[in-house]
Design a protein around this nucleic acid. Structure first.
Lengths: 143, 143
DNA sequence: GTTATCTGATACTAAATTAGTATCAGATAA
DNA sequence: TTATCTGATACTAATTTAGTATCAGATAAC
């Protein structure tokens, strides 16, 4: 059971890269090399992030992308939802008329609780927080 | 982001069915009809549950399957692990030598916390508990 | 004003996972 | 001996995930 796909994983790493160089345009090529993410794949991920409003871009030489929000206001939950959709359990939830366990689906009930929990947790984790954690690790390594 | 696959979903429902008729052999056909699960698919799921020791079987006419454990000791977590493997985040955890974020992968750190949380929650939910919930719902409907 | 460096848009392929089907051998009870 | 079961296993189809390729157009530097 894999929680995060490559899309989400790469997106979060890219956002961290951008967040650490806020207010300067960074090319997809640079991020791709820094984070060891396949270039063309990353390009598409960035375009998705742009469409979603987390990132803005400038075309042409010297252009690139940068965060369009404060890193602290970008939640990992948002990134997951962009690439993997909302956390859900299984299909039966959405085809209530078909599912034999519909209203009284006890498993569903239990799982919605867990779903909520996961959502809350991923909401607490922001790009800003991850950058902060990274910097702490960096300082520990220096000493 | 779909948490449970059909395998797990069907398996849990089948286990509930069996748990409600404990100590009698129930055929895959019966479960299949009761829970509206494709017969051949269910057969394979049951075989997997048998291999894992949650269920035992008897061949031949009048045979079938039944739980080989107390419903209270079968956790949804176990079922998930049989069909979807352990809850994990993303690949980088397993290829430490390849992942550029290895030891200091901050996302990984956050996620392992959430992983633990999900595991704990799914460990609390047992087939016995689900059956109990179902019975409560049943009583509410009667009145 | 030409060229190198960028993104925008989009089409495509490959691999892996998930979901479901089919078949035949053999056990068992009626 | 026959109908009803599971054991084992091979197969296919659909969907999702991962990754590649291409071309048009914007921009800055020279």
């Amino acid at each position: 059971m894999k929680v995060l796909t490559k899309h989400t994983d790469y997106a979060v790493r890219a956002l961290i890269s951008l967040g650490m160089k806020s207010d300067s345009w960074v090319s997809a090529k640079t991020v791709s090399e820094e984070q060891a993410i396949p270039y063309q794949f990353l390009r598409r991920i960035l375009q998705e992030l742009i469409r979603s409003g987390l990132v803005e871009s400038r075309e042409g030489a010297g252009g690139g992308v940068k965060l369009s929000k404060n890193p602290d206001s970008i939640r990992v939950k948002d990134v997951i939802e962009i690439f993997q959709g909302k956390v859900q359990v299984s299909e039966c939830m959405f085809r209530k008329q078909l599912c034999s366990n519909r209203a009284d689906c006890v498993l569903r009930h239990e799982i919605m609780r867990i779903e909520q929990l996961v959502n809350d947790e991923f909401s607490k984790v922001t790009i800003g927080k991850l950058i902060g954690d990274l910097e702490i690790v960096g300082k520990m390594k220096q000493s």
